[in-house]
């Protein structure tokens, strides 16, 4: 795996577009089909805003985003923060079929991430949350 880009910025909404721009550029460079850039943008907004809103609980902190590609099979995005432990892969899927009164306001973002990336891997290392999104350079985007 070759590292294409590393972006470290404060976990604040005003940096959302800078993060997404860096990842989009890296994805193009890493061989991702342009049609799939939209899915990457969507998944990244969900992961990043989750960290920005909840991880640091009122204190300040950074988010690190590292993009890698092997140019054949995988483009990967590794997102790291030092906020409270949170494993989005363990969150159950929301109810997508209920009526308006049954539907909850939250939970959709995580569902998007799991749907749009081919694989989502989480690990806690010391005080860090590390989330890895794997995007296949071949297979279709939405399962």
């Amino acid at each position: 795996m070759k590292t294409i880009s590393t972006t470290v910025l404060p976990a604040k909404l005003e940096y959302l577009s800078a993060f997404i721009e860096a990842v989009t550029k890296a994805a193009i460079h890493g061989g991702v089909d342009r049609k799939r850039l939209f899915y990457i943008e969507l998944a990244m907004e969900e992961v990043l805003t989750n960290i920005m809103y909840y991880a640091y609980e009122g204190t300040e902190g950074d988010i690190g985003v590292v993009c890698r590609s092997d140019s054949r099979q995988w483009f990967t995005i590794e997102i790291t923060d030092r906020g409270k432990a949170f494993d989005m892969t363990a969150v159950p899927s929301p109810n997508l079929t209920g009526t308006l009164s049954e539907r909850k306001i939250g939970g959709l973002g995580i569902h998007f991430v799991k749907t749009l990336a081919n694989e989502v891997l989480y690990r806690r290392e010391g005080d860090r949350n590390i989330l890895e999104l794997k995007i296949s350079l071949h297979s279709p985007a939405v399962r």
Partner: peptide, 11 residues
């Protein structure tokens, strides 16, 4: 473009 934030607003 619409993200889950947009959908939450609509909901």
């Amino acid at each position: 473009y619409i993200s889950s934030a947009g959908l939450r607003g609509i909901l």
